[in-house]
Design a protein around this nucleic acid. Sequence first.
RNA 1: GGGCGUUUAGCUCAGUUGGCUAGAGCAUCUCGUUUACACCGAGAGGGUCGGGGGUUCGAAUCCCUCAACGCCCACCA
Length: 893
Amino acid sequence: MIEIEKAYEAKKYEDKIYEKWESSGAFKPKIDKKKKPFVISMPPPNATGVLHLGHAVMLALEDIMIRYNRMQGTPTLWVPGTDHASIATQNKVEQLLAQKKITKYDLGREEFLKEVDKFVKDSQSTIRNQIRKMGSSCDWTRERYTLDSGLTNAVQTVFLKMYKDGLIYRGSRIVNWCPRCESVLADDEVDYKESREKLYWIKYGPFTVATTRPETKLGDTAVAVNPADKRYKKMIGKVFPIKSALGEYKIVVIGDKSVEMEFGSGAVKVTPAHSFADFEMAQRNKEVFKKAEIEPIKEVIDEKGIMKENCGKYKGMTTKECRKILVEDLEKIGLIEKIEDYIHNLSICYRCGYTIEPLISKQWFIDVDKPVIKDGAKKKSIKEKSTEVVKKGEIEIIPEKFNKTYFNWMENLHDWCISRQIWFGHRVPVWYKMDEKSKKEYEKNPEKSRYILGDKEVICSIKKPDDENHYVQDPDTLDTWFSSGLWTFSTLGWPDKTEDFKYFHPTSVLETGYDILFFWVARMIIMTEYTLGEVPFKTVYLHGLIRDKNGKKMSKSAGNGIDPLEMIAKYGTDPVRLSLVIGGTPGNDMCLSEDKIEGYRNFINKIWNASRFALMNVSEEDLKKKFTPSMAKSTADKWIFTELNALVKATNIDMERYNFSEAGIRIYEFIWNNYCDWYLEISKGEHKNPVVLLHVLKTSLKLLHPFIPFVTEKLWELMKEETMLISEIWPKEDKNTIFKKEAKDLEEVRSIISKIRSLRSELKVEPAKKINAVIYAGKQLKLIEEKREVIERMARLENLKIEEKGKKIEGAKIIIHGNIEIYLPLKDMIDIEKEAKRIKVEMMKKEAIISSIEAKLSNEGFVKNAPKELIEKEKEKLAKEKSELFKMVQNMV
RNA sequence: GGGCGUUUAGCUCAGUUGGCUAGAGCAUCUCGUUUACACCGAGAGGGUCGGGGGUUCGAAUCCCUCAACGCCCACCA
């Protein structure tokens, strides 16, 4: 007999258990070249982040996969790490400095970066510990950081390769510019926010045009109309003078199908330098501009969102100020026709929320359409190749529905802008040759002297050029997704041909939220296919968003967020993990509430107490005994094993299919409804078998370990196992312990007990009161006799008479179960009328069932087409129902 | 505007290629301290599977249609 505490206290054990795992080396795979490894690269949390529910669900799911595979005996590697998250981190440090009234320019690039590094080092350890708190069994000896020297080397190597292949180019383009971050953003780094704006109707030469951004009028070079528009058709190609607050300027009328005739006046002012749509229109109408001798690009807004030199009195104003004053000025000269309220989507920076200003800028791009990847005789673009690997099934996306989303995104992919005007990140490895004078000018104020960086005599190199004194390095850094795109292989030591890289790449599963399918997953596929000519992973598993109880997005401002760390402190890690996994299906959002976590805490405690009971009933010697199938003796033993086998089989299928929620529910139900409510209860009587009691429990602990590693490991230890559960071998189905007949027998006993209990409750017999009963067991006489003790105890009976058959007992409650009749002589408690009614209702139900089955069986189509097993089953059921009905009729008479 | 998805008990969701009288957890109600556990036990109520139509011997499941809700992408003055 072994006594353990009455309730499981997670806090007492979790940290110690984690330490034991880690120090034992259990997280480190043993490379075995004969075996195929299982590998996950952990999506690196931001180095400055704090663990949130998105991380928690990611860690829970990945740890389940990792532990499950490890227990299969597969060499299993989970690489942890952190992301430098360039813009996000830089912004954070800038904010901190702002509190001290310091700007990054006060410090200068070098000092500022030192500050950032310091900040990163501090917060990295926070997130590391929080990953540990979740029980994540990742290999910390292989931890990486997107900005460590190895990864920087990988980034530069890939950049160089792309540069040589002509895949990377520098070009002037209209880009999304955040005046606050003072950096370009990629298309998908732009968010949209619905906002209430003004729509200004401006008299515009022979036209009236509407705009939400009047300040761009200063950069207008054309008016666009639909070429099919009868009103304006004849004006296309003509030049008109336009009155403005700064005097007159000329525009040319261009025809473009994208202009909608019905909207507004059907004429649009065109500002190619500060609008994507307008830029494209200008490109399509180059010739028209040429003929009219009008330069299409007229830049009027600079990189800080300030009106440029060429804006006369508006020079130096912010766009907002300029808008206000310009509108006033236009009103004065009677050019404003009307001003309306207007709701439209404002483009904002996804990092800081500031309004985006589209402008023309020289940036580095990756050409997604250039054929560079050799594929037989042909060459394919990275876009084509990345589409192909998913189409061909080399990469499987779970759930499948995201294939379409992925293809759609790939098809519409434009050249990827990879340079950022951010200090923190991987510096673009490009050097520009300069004479003394320009170099001095440049170095005095690199931020404002970008234009000096020419296009001639450029070197792309990892090392500094030999005559370093004549070169300056490109001041820009790379998009943070450039480095995370290399994550699966850069973390394994590439570009060195390390053992790790050769053995562990490509990885097995990439598990992450569907919200970063484009940001990250697609980019990894692109970068890895290009660099290595292989896929980064074979399976993509996408989880959904965690929402609150009411399905609302969790957010700080709404105050409906759940802090996983707080929940862990309150309930323990295991319940938090379970609540994040159960109820979730790939690609679908999931609701989470504290109630749910509490529910799974209760389950953890249930397991603890089931183990407590088992340990109390087991001797030290029993613990040492090795289980063999012959130890299954009683009907109950054989039943629980049969159930256990079914559980193992179904769980394995679920795990292989990534149905973790289903697997979890299944084990939960087994433990609670089969093991605790029945097997354990039966064990309290005559039919004790401590070895089986323990063996079934231990097998369950193995199945549960990937889901709730801490409590299972602790119990394993209490069961005096020498090795740790984390390294145990996963259960297999054991055909020697499947006993169909006994399993069916026990189900009979179980439903007899349930039916008696139900009737007792209906009659309001006190739970504690024992009542008399008579069972006419028919063919089941032997079984019922054998299980007398169980039935008596669990149904609370006394003076139980068991006969093969006998006469109807007057004034007794009757239960018909197949061929078995059960009489409960409760004369004084029975209302004869009511009883007759009850039986009548039941008979009617039975008749309905019987006629429905009979209809089925006499249906030719059914008999011809339905599977044989099903027909057999229906026949069996019909027989049972008929016999029960027959007995009821007999009893009525 | 283009695409995707969801709709099953009061709530959150399961429901494999069509095949029990449609399930679970939570919540609700009744009763209960019988050698693990009140973080518990026993029992009960509750659903025309969003509406309509079709295919089929048979539809929650397949097809069509309508409705409501949600998400992603593109963004137009």
